[in-house]
Write a protein that binds this DNA or RNA. Structure first.
Lengths: 221, 221
DNA sequence: TGTACATCAGTGAACGCGCGTTCACTGATGTAC
DNA sequence: TGTACATCAGTGAACGCGCGTTCACTGATGTAC
């Protein structure tokens, strides 16, 4: 059973993370400031070092959590979908990004300078969960034999890596890769404001695009 | 005819921009430091203010130039292409991004905090040139009647904006939008290191993807 | 149950750093007569 | 051609700021006997 000290520690730890997230959301500074986080929870900057050995460690934690939250959101929407689960997943991805632009930027924006994510650490694992969340509807389509056959030469070696990572037959992996990068392209442009000139409401445009994508790739049920 | 003073000014101006670019490329800091740029050309930090009223102004200049350089590179590859001009353009886009990751990040990465690009200024104009560079091959395909007909509902209002901006009939605009966002998605993921786990050489994967995209959309000649 | 000691969360002050920007100035370049 | 004045590139010092991290410390919590 947890001692009083352990309970308090956990509580403070959670409070720090929450405050860090809040700071990120307001986007006050380019990147996260340890001092600002400390002050916002009424702690001295030095105190944080009892919880994180460095700023990078806190960032790593936030990134891992961010990927996990995004992946979960996508998976939830996918499973709750009535119609095309793939489109539902894509829309959830977009929705999360637009709702949490600063977190999204932390995950997929300009790599944080001097911060080098551990190549095989928890962040990279969490990151793959996001891509994987789109896979089940593609597997379904593949089982139905609905996936569009590619005219283009079969996947090169890199795709084999992808195929085995997401546990898909290579031709379905090509579709998954195409789908994932296409969705991300639209969403990242929109989230970072590069589609602002298209007008206020780009939601219908995004939805039409996702549906077309699902259709083109032969995923749609 | 330019006075000596004017010539010198132009020269210094160019030197500043070159130094700023060099700093960006090395990616020493998160964002550009005026002081570092000044020092690197042997000028005092205050001196820069004879050339740019603020750091943001310098950034705006760099961003504009970056978009222009990228658009030019894409257009050049497209026009020089022997086979599929669209694929050549996409490959050029990718090549430029990987060759200039920090500039690419400035253009398409996390929006610079506190820096708000003038909505209708030169940056936004330059930015559209990039998207537009992909359009000609799509127009060709449309003229040939080769573009794949979409099963999905015709484009919503936002797409009309896009169509008139790139001067395309709406159904061709849908294709152009799809193509541009799909290319960007792959390239931005790759440039920012999110595809590193797929292995060293992702070039064949990218090329296969671009070819498949050209095929799927009915752009390929 | 009480006491002595160990652990550890959190403090407060300080470190050295780089940042964008300002200001009064010097001295070279250009211009009007 | 020479002189008096205006323009303006660039300097050097200073401003106030926020940053991540360190260090010796205080005092509460936990543990062993």
């Amino acid at each position: 059973m947890a001692t009083r000290r352990e309970r308090l520690r956990e509580q403070t730890s959670a409070e720090i993370k929450a405050a860090a997230l809040a700071h990120l959301r307001e986007g006050g500074g380019a990147v996260l400031s340890l001092r600002a986080v400390a002050v916002s929870i009424g702690m001295s900057p030095a105190g944080l070092y009892r919880y994180y050995p460095s700023r990078d460690a806190l960032l790593t934690d936030l990134i891992t959590d961010g990927f996990a939250a995004l992946a979960e959101e996508v998976a939830r929407a996918r499973d709750a979908a009535e119609g095309d689960a793939f489109v539902a997943a894509a829309l959830a991805y977009r929705r999360w990004a637009l709702a949490h632009p600063h977190e999204f930027a932390l995950l997929y924006g300009t790599p944080v300078p001097d911060y080098q994510a551990p190549r095989s650490g928890p962040t990279s694992h969490a990151s793959r969960q996001v891509g994987t969340a789109f896979v089940p509807p593609i597997i379904d389509a593949w089982r139905r034999g609905a996936l569009k056959q590619r005219a283009v030469a079969p996947p090169p070696t890199a795709l084999d890596v992808f195929a085995s990572a997401v546990d898909l037959p290579p031709d379905a992996a090509a579709v998954a890769f195409a789908a994932w990068t296409a969705i991300h392209g639209l969403v990242v442009l929109e989230t970072f404001g590069h589609l602002a000139w298209l007008g206020e409401d780009t939601a219908p445009l995004a939805e039409a695009r996702f549906r077309a994508l699902s259709d083109d790739l032969g995923i749609a049920p």
